[in-house]
Structure formats: C-alpha cells, structure tokens
C-alpha cells in the first residue's frame, strides 16, 4: 500500500510539473524567434519537454512497488 501511495504521489508530481512547463509564463520564455537544431525554439522546447515527461512517466509507472 505504501508503494502505491508513493507511485501515486510521484505521478501527481509529474502532472503538476507538466502543467507548469506547458503553461504561461514558461511557454512565453520560448515563444521567441529563432531556430534550435533547425526547428523553431518553441516547437523544439515543446517536443523535447513532452518526450522527457513521457520518459519520466514510463520510469515511475514501470518502477516496482
């Protein structure tokens, strides 16, 4: 039961982290002209952050209790 609680808490934390990263004002910091690896900064930021978030979710979800 303790393990489940922990996993739940970590997941909630990830959700909150995502809510902050994909929201004003953080998004505004990247809403600027220019390219990163040939991709507009905002797009690069969103896709990279998204991928990292999914990786973290995978880690927490698959972690044994």
């Amino acid at each position: 039961m303790h393990g489940f609680e922990k996993k739940g808490q970590r997941m909630i934390a990830l959700c909150m982290l995502g809510c902050v990263l994909f929201n004003f004002p953080i998004l505004a910091l990247f809403n600027v002209p220019g390219l990163l690896f040939g991709v507009p900064v905002l797009y690069a930021y969103i896709f990279i952050t998204w991928a990292l978030l999914i990786a973290l979710m995978a880690r927490v979800a698959e972690k044994r209790d």
Partner: peptide, 29 residues
C-alpha cells in the same frame, strides 16, 4: 529535412508569425 522546411517558413513573411504563435492567435495563452 526539418531544418529546410522551417527555414523556408521563416523566410516567408506570411508564415513567420506561426513560429512564435502564442502571441498572435486568438485568446493566446
């Protein structure tokens, strides 16, 4: 490749605003 598409878009005055879209579109954030 990606770089080519975005570089051409950035060069197009009609498309340029789409690269920093959050200020331009209705409702924004």
């Amino acid at each position: 490749g990606f770089g080519d598409v975005f570089a051409r878009a950035a060069a197009d005055p009609e498309l340029r605003p789409l690269l920093t879209p959050l200020e331009g579109v209705a409702g924004g954030y």
